[in-house]
Structures are given as structure tokens and as C-alpha cells.
């Protein structure tokens, strides 16, 4: 099994995602430069965080036109596993692979802090090994993580069980006071209709080793790897 970590100009969590997959989870992983055009031979794709193209026009707006994104779209259409973390999530919504948009945090400032997340569904390859309603701790680090969508889209996301994570307090209430960025209905992560494309603002790559304080992120990556192994059998 082999994973690709995409590298756009300005990606800065590419090394972090690579490190977790290759050295912590222990699966074969390669960096893939954004000018590449093929994902042949890869079983999963990670679009890492960072500031692709400086986030200068809109976050993710320029990266979605990179040559590799055509391959990512085809890969996703065929049911391939794609995770976008933070800037990766922003790229996925700009590319139309996930619905909605990510706008400026309501406090207008960049926020780097641990947040609590409630697992809303285990019906995804990424959360199959969590418990529904379980509270995780993960770091966020973004200025544009405020998830927004029109009412129909929001309705559809809920109807189809596509909301994967919500910001919550320590006891699991998705309270407004626990919402760091103003995201609609505290949404922190969503999955595509086909359940194979995950976008999330929190960083599982930053909490995948005990020495960093939490291993909740590691469970997400392991869940993905295990689901892929099973589906290959």
C-alpha cells in the first residue's frame, strides 16, 4: 500500500504528514510535486496543510488549478481515499470535491490551539475505529477555517451523515463557546457523498505521537490504512 503526500508551492505540513505515515504508521509514502499528473500506483492521497501559493487570492484558489488536481479529481471519482487537512481541506472545497467554503475565522485572527472534537460518524474509512460521540483532542492552526454552506447543502450533509467532526467542549457538547472559528453548526470536518474524500480543519498530523501530547490523530491515519487493507482483501 502506498500513499502520496502532495506538495504545492507553499505547503508546509507536507513533511509532518509524510513523517506520520512513513515513520509512525509505517506505510510506504512518497511526496508528489504538484506539477505531476498521475496518481498511478497510489492507494491514498493526503493534501497537507500550509499556505499554498501564499493563500494570497483565496485559500486553495490557485492550488486547485495545479496539474496534479486533475488526477486527484479522477482518483476521488473512482472512490480513492483523499484526506485534505487544513489548507488541504480548503483546496478540496475550492476544487469542488467537497461542498461549502472556508472563510475567515469570526475572531479575524489566526488561531493555533488544541480543540475538542466530537466524532459524528464512524461510517467513513477515517473514523471507523472511533466511537460515535467520542471526544478527541486535536490542534487547529488556521485563519480561514470558518465552514460555511447554503442551507440546502447543510441539510444534505446532515441527511447523508457527511458531517464527520464537530467542535465541542470537554464533555462533548457542540456549544457555541467551544466553536473556535464560527463554523456553521460547529462543523470541523466533512466527508464526500461517496464517503472517500475527507476534509478537516484540525491537524491529525500534529497529534500522532505520545511525545506531542496526544495520539488521537494517529488513530485516524491507522483507521484509514486498515480500511484500505480490508477493502483490498
Amino acid at each position: 500500500m502506498k500513499f502520496a503526500v502532495l506538495v504545492f508551492p507553499g505547503s508546509n505540513c507536507d513533511h509532518d504528514c509524510y513523517h506520520v505515515l512513513k515513520h509512525v504508521v509505517g506505510v510506504s509514502t512518497e511526496f508528489l510535486w504538484h506539477k505531476e499528473t498521475s496518481l498511478a500506483g497510489f492507494d491514498g492521497v493526503v493534501i497537507p496543510g500550509g499556505f499554498s501559493y501564499g493563500d494570497y487570492l483565496r485559500c486553495g484558489a490557485i492550488a486547485r488549478f495545479s496539474p496534479i488536481m486533475k488526477a486527484v479529481e479522477a482518483f476521488a471519482r473512482e472512490g480513492g481515499s483523499v484526506i485534505g487537512v487544513c489548507n488541504g481541506f480548503q483546496i478540496l472545497v475550492e476544487a469542488g470535491l467537497l461542498p461549502g467554503a472556508l472563510i475567515r475565522n469570526r475572531g479575524l485572527k489566526f488561531i493555533c490551539a488544541d480543540v475538542n472534537l466530537r466524532v459524528e460518524t464512524t461510517r467513513t474509512p477515517y473514523t471507523a475505529e472511533f466511537r460515535k460521540g467520542e471526544v478527541l483532542t486535536m490542534p487547529i492552526a488556521h485563519a480561514e477555517g470558518n465552514y460555511t454552506a447554503d442551507p440546502e447543502t447543510l441539510d444534505k450533509l446532515k441527511r447523508n451523515d457527511q458531517v464527520v467532526f464537530r467542535y465541542c467542549d470537554a464533555s462533548g457538547n457542540a456549544a457555541d463557546s467551544a466553536n473556535p472559528n464560527g463554523a456553521m453548526e460547529n462543523i470541523a470536518g466533512i466527508v464526500s457523498e461517496g464517503r472517500n474524500v475527507l476534509g478537516m480543519m484540525p491537524h491529525p498530523d500534529r497529534c500522532a505521537e505520545k511525545v506531542l501530547g496526544s495520539e488521537d490523530g494517529l488513530r485516524l491515519f491507522k483507521s484509514m490504512v486498515n480500511s484500505l487493507s480490508e477493502s483490498r482483501v
Binding site: 501559493y53 501564499g54 494570497y56 487570492l57 490557485i62 488549478f65
Partner: peptide, 14 residues
């Protein structure tokens, strides 16, 4: 203007 520069390059690429 770093933003202008990045957008210009992206337009060229397109």
C-alpha cells in the same frame, strides 16, 4: 505586491 505577483503567475499558468 506578493498577492498580485502570485495571481499573475497563476494566470500565466492557466
Amino acid at each position: 505586491d506578493p498577492q498580485g505577483k502570485a495571481v499573475e503567475q497563476a494566470l500565466h499558468a492557466l
